[in-house]
Amino acid sequence: MDTRKLIDVLASEPVPVAAGGLRRRFFIALVVGGAGAFALMLAYLGLRPDLAVVARTPMFWVKLGFPLALLAIALVGAGRLARPGVPLGRAAVAPLVPIGLIWILGVVVLFYLAPGERLAALFGATWKVCPFNITVLSLPAFAAALWVMKGMAPTRPVAAGAFSGLLAGALGATVYCLHCPEMAPPFIGTWYLLGILIPAAAGAALGPRLLRW
């Protein structure tokens, strides 16, 4: 088949294509990923019993704000990486902003704590399970975000995989906040971050293999 014939073939009916598909796909991924994480959290971990009480403290919202900010950045970045020819721009470094802020807060908190309380603020009671739990809760969103990317045309598969994983990790961590008893910024800036970076690294590693088109 020569190229002219191929063009005839491609240009014959039916041509029209629905616009606005990307937003819809990401919306579905967020719903599926969020609901999946919530179901996993309820089934294996449970809501923290004092949720209604801590929800009235500012620190709870700071803690929730950290993964939510990363989630918003990941959505923007993944949306750009999904289309050929759209530069990633500032979204490439934007994740450093919430990470920097939580670290500054963490350092300030450590500074004002008595020396004997610092280790407790960093390790809490659950540091051994926190990154693992966040990674598990991110699995539904991980699959959903890669499904979104697979339906688009990422030309930078490593970055596209990493931002898909970041999105999943951030969503998993957001849901994990509803279970997790830890409230210290140094803990959030270390173990939550690690839990979010594990799916991001997995996405970067799998991207070139899974996102070819």
């Binding site: 190229t3 191929l6 063009i7 491609l10 294509v17 629905a18 616009a19 598909g21 990307l22 999904a82 289309r83 050929p84 020819g85 759209v86 688009m152 045309a153 030309t155 088109w213």
Partner: peptide, 25 residues
């Protein structure tokens, strides 16, 4: 590449330059 452009035409956003899009593909 023509086939890829066709298969991925839903990834074009009219707010963006066509040239950058096809060049990236």
């Amino acid at each position: 590449t023509l086939l890829a452009v066709h298969n991925q035409r839903h990834t074009y956003d009219a707010a963006l330059p066509v040239t950058a899009w096809v060049h990236a593909i």
